[in-house]
Design a binder for these strands. Structure first.
Lengths: 210, 210
DNA sequence: TGATATCTATCTAGTAGTAGGTAGTCAAGT
DNA sequence: ACTTGACTACCTACTACTAGATAGATATCA
């Protein structure tokens, strides 16, 4: 049974209403933390590392983020917001709109591709899964589920509109795409080879475009 | 220019000749370490964890593996040996032999798939790349390079023999396969969902089999 | 307006616990 | 007797985290 809808709906990932926006320092901490995790992994980033990089004391970081898991949670949430915010309005009468929506989803991937030494935050956390605090484990799982749902819907509706062409179910293809992106990003980091990512992205396009 | 060869040659990954085989305890330490890394990540496994699991003191682990990087190195080497040892003799006159060789390469993947809570050792280490000792960083990079070379050759010769069918270069397809496996394994762990892996493996077969 | 109080963001100085790693001892097996 | 594999006991460095103080900004109120 195919569910019909005119537009790709922005998925909700239970956003806690952020009543107070983050200050400059807090955001700097979050940004540095995110980058370092994408390079080294969650467990390899210490408050001391962060403090030195930003130029404050570790205690000041604890002021903004009492526990490491708080910091991890914020960073994960911001990352998910970024990843799912690139929404392009889709229209069944304009197949191109689905391709544009897909391209928009690839924007964060392109950013990671072009930043040396980093891979996807979620992939890194996924690799360390069992060692993470519960809240982060759940966040990671939820990200993957949301991403699959989002991709499945885009592929399904895009195929009906004639924008995509592939065999098998949309869900199966969504699983392949999510997997190939995660894997390719990790390999490009480990091999320090942007070419790997570029090749895979090209193959991926060939896989779904008519 | 296509390189012709009758057989898939087992790649060398500069194996240091292990003059002395490992004792029972040493192997138990290595095995437990490998499993725990595949669950949590390299940096989240301590000598204390290991010692408790095996039932010895941490100092005893240092006796067998003076530094953590030694332990990591051995485990990485054993993992690579396992991954690349499944060699099936290929024969251009028997296309089925290439499919069998491919299936043999998937055997370790199937093992990981069916073990709850673990993902591929190399993928985990890849995710933590920047925080690893140099020797491990190089080992991981080399694994990916060897794997790509191995897969490329198998796909190329298998396609010539009529065993595989796909568009694009063999190398590009090898990159896709290596990536999709890594990604899928991480996602199945994070989502605790074997179904994800099974779906992806099926799609992967459909991608290269005529 | 001036005094008082509260808030923000940082600091110094510490905590207990854990990390990887070392020195030196000792018993059992060959 | 020598090797093997384990031990006890320890070390230094680092971990996340806390307590308490302080300087400066901002709000409240007599």
């Amino acid at each position: 049974m195919i569910r019909r809808s005119t537009n790709i709906v922005r998925p909700e990932h239970n956003e806690i209403p952020v009543t107070k926006p983050m200050g400059k320092t807090a955001q700097a901490i979050a940004d540095s933390f995110a980058t370092m995790v994408m390079e080294r992994g969650y467990n390899a980033v210490s408050y001391a590392d962060l403090a030195e990089k930003i130029g404050i004391r570790t205690a000041s970081i604890h002021y903004h983020f009492p526990k490491k898991s708080d910091l991890g949670g914020i960073v994960l949430q911001q990352y998910a917001d970024m990843a799912f915010s690139a929404v392009v309005k889709t229209d069944p009468d304009h197949p191109q709109s689905y391709r544009e929506a897909f391209a928009a989803m690839m924007e964060p991937v392109r950013m990671i591709t072009n930043t040396q030494g980093v891979s996807c935050l979620i992939g890194v956390l996924g690799a360390e899964h069992a060692s993470l605090p519960d809240a982060l484990q759940n966040g990671v799982r939820q990200f993957f589920e949301t991403q699959e749902q989002f991709l499945t819907q885009l592929l399904e509706e895009g195929r009906e509109a004639g924008a995509f062409e592939f065999s098998g179910s949309s869900r199966a293809m969504a699983k392949v795409i999510a997997s190939v992106l995660q894997g390719a990003i990790i390999i490009k980091k480990a091999r320090d080879d942007i070419g790997h990512m570029e090749s895979v992205l090209q193959s991926l396009n060939a896989m779904i475009m008519p």
